[in-house]
Design a protein around this nucleic acid. Structure first.
Lengths: 195, 195
DNA sequence: CTTGTAACTGAACGAACGTTCAGTTATGGT
DNA sequence: ACCATAACTGAACGTTCGTTCAGTTACAAG
């Protein structure tokens, strides 16, 4: 067998470079980065990384996938415990953007006000990712304008027409008197803790 | 006044290119992309984009910032309503990764099991972003191993020592009998809706 | 210890890169 | 209608790019 090529170090260094420079290093820059003395060494390494899905190539140019750019290490099994530094190499890396957003050009961020969805675990101050367009189904959480005011509620429909349900027993079902405009469908909710 | 240069179109096109190719286009590629007949036109455009914080430059090479790469359009004022297609130009764009993750190399994703934090709006099936290391303060939500088992709870401390509090009245305060290992601090929680 | 193999070296190549310069064109304000 | 101004054209430049090739080196399995 030939010499082993430890990808882990190299990948870590590429991540580091990208975070600093916000761009993909050139072959000669990678030469320095990895301590190679030949550009062809880089060439081979990149081909490997491409096989494993870390980089893409188009038009003789290199692009990094979310496996390199992404910032979150995903842990498959939860109850299995927490990773020790030694076994961290195995986990997959992804980007939250890619994970949560399917249509970037149609997705917005909204800060939630009011407690009408609190039983659905959506608290005031939470952030909600809303996708415009697409079909709305019964049971979807939507951002809607009823009679001039914007709210976030469960969407429903029956023989009397469309209605909006809060997730809070203190409020009751809303039936639009005049107008109902659906702004979009809630695809995800996010809460950021201060500390 | 000289000719106006409509940045919006160009920025949209750069976004599109980046999503497809996962890399920054070269000057000549941008020439085609924007319909220019001179590379110098691109040169000037890039200088503008750099001023506005869309691109970075290092070593004669271009990098895209999260303003270009990011996938979420941020709406500052919520109750103000939903943006019409016409006014969408004004809003800022950011990346969820950058927004939620401060230390990418120390942050993990965990899927929540169990309902012990349900009153804090953390439901089973939710995803939690955990940052390893750093100081833990009273009131922080932590991922911890008590007497061999991993859980997610509020962290607290008094004269009897450290304890863990659930956010569910059906469960009660936990005091570690033998061991307590803090895996990390919960920095954010995320829920993704299926549809 | 030998041998197969893939990681690497080092040099070379044309192509494409980002940048510069002098000049032209379109546009909004006066 | 004119002018100031910045967007743009078009050509040129040295530099650096990604790729190729023939040859060398280090490792692991038999």
């Amino acid at each position: 067998m030939p010499r082993p090529l430890n990808l882990e170090d190299r990948i870590a260094k590429l991540r580091q470079f990208y975070r600093h420079e916000k761009r993909v290093p050139s072959y000669s820059e990678m030469m320095d980065l990895f301590g190679y003395h030949s550009k062809n060494a880089v060439y081979g390494l990149i081909r490997r990384l491409q096989e494993y899905g870390y980089v893409t190539r188009s038009g003789g140019k290199i692009g990094f996938t979310s496996k390199l750019i992404g910032s979150i290490r995903l842990l498959g099994a939860v109850q299995a415990g927490f990773p020790s530094p030694a076994e961290e190499e195995l986990v997959d890396v992804l980007s939250l953007d890619e994970f949560l957003v399917q249509k970037p050009e149609a997705t917005f961020m909204l800060t939630v006000t009011g407690d009408s969805m609190i039983d659905a675990g959506i608290h005031p101050g939470d952030i909600v990712l809303v996708e415009k367009g697409g079909t709305i189904r019964k049971g979807d959480i939507v951002v809607a304008q009823v009679d001039g005011e914007w709210t976030i509620k469960y969407f429903g429909k029956d023989k009397q027409g469309a209605y909006l349900d809060p997730a809070n027993s203190a409020y009751k079902r809303i039936r639009p008197k005049e107008s109902l405009t659906i702004g979009g469908k809630v695809k995800a909710s996010v809460r950021k803790y201060a500390s």
